[in-house]
Amino acid sequence: MEISNYMRNEHRSCDESFAKSEHAVNNDDFKEAFKHFEDFMIETLNHFAKEEEILFPAFEEATGSTEGPTMVMCHEHNQVRQLLEKLKDAIKNEDKKEFFSVADTLMILLQQHNMKEEQMLYAMCDRVLQQQAGDLVEKMKEH
């Protein structure tokens, strides 16, 4: 459960920053929104990097599979990256309508992505990477 717990907590932390950004845009405070959006983007991209550079390679090595679920998750990471750019533009242009349109798409994409990871992939990681779980979590914390 060590890997699951650590990664799940990171998902929740990202949700918090995103919600703060939405609140700020809703109050037409785009300066404040950008601050929270930056936090959210940094946290999210850092989380993706931990997965793509540390967790997924370890999972792929343990399972011998590079074209399975980790590949799909990486594809979804790229979809999120595209939407993050759009969201940044919407805040810069102070376009509230565009912001919430992108935000809705991004949020559902992220949440269903997180659900798949939390309910399946992380549980599998806990199992196949049991021996090295502590080391992997330490590496990810240092990332």
Partner: peptide, 10 residues
């Protein structure tokens, strides 16, 4: 073998 039953993209 470990990813049996784990298919996230279908």
């Amino acid at each position: 073998m470990f990813s049996h039953g784990l298919s996230l993209d279908q």
